[in-house]
Amino acid sequence: MDLRTASAGSYPRIGDDPDQQALREACARFARGELGAAGLRAAEDDAAARAIAEQIEAGLDVVTDGLVRWYDPISHVAQALMGIRPGPLRRFFDTGMEFRQPIVRGPIVRTRALVTEDYAFAAARSDRPVKAVLTGPLTLAAVSVIETPAYPGLETLTETYAEALAGELAALGAAGARLVQLDEPAALAGPAALALLGRVLPVIVAAKGDVELMLALPFGDPLPLWPQIARLPVDVVALDLTGSPHLEALPPAEGPIPRLALGLVDARTTAEDDVAGRAALAARVLAAAPPGPHYLTTSCGLEMVPRAAARRKLALLGAIRAALNGGALS
């Protein structure tokens, strides 16, 4: 079976060693006015290059730029759009991370690239395929505050975000991206949320061309919603299998299902993962999957663990694949 190990998105921007503090120090100097925008950009470039190098060293087939330029999981995309201003800090689901709440003050317009330049930088520094990551339209809308009559509610706001993201997806495709991930933790809120996402996704899908579209559903148990998830019009769906404590295998779904990215390694703890157990779970889930390629990944991005743990976690993906390909688990 064609199994590819892939980054789930973020990677720790700094580490615990003194020589791993450069980006933190640069951001602090920038905030104090001691460093210009070009200097900060250089520090971000260096951090991205290091994140890519460490993912390659860990043996990943598909890497990201670690999202090292992102202020938080929401703002990097939302604040690049016209019509939005930064609001107060809010908690990002149950992660312990925080984000600036987008305040929608007027019509939302994509006037510049959101992540395409980040992608181009990473692609130029990696001999492996690079995945671009975008926050999804439902999650952006769900965490926003509307202070304009332009959007009467969640549905229209989600549609508008989807239109903006469709433009970015087209730009990414033109820049050479072949795999783009939409992060949609808000979709696991329930059937209504997933139904809304299902209604707006065609806007994005229509713009993707030959880009492979991966929908990531981190921070929750996808099992209860699997029949609905399986019908979404995406190429790949990334599932957080560490959030499914009782998962034996995915239940049957009507019709063809997307290919899978299995979040097998827990990216939210430093505890050791059970490689054999995770590989056995993957084997059971993949038994009902369509032809590949499929992806093996962490449960979510790795910025919630220290850098040393992140490297250790990534290396486990190769070990799980080796166990799967060894055939001892079938």
Partner: peptide, 12 residues
């Protein structure tokens, strides 16, 4: 003791 985790922005 544990390692550094980012909360948001440049806050760890």
């Amino acid at each position: 003791p544990g390692g550094l985790i980012r909360i948001y922005g440049n806050c760890y």
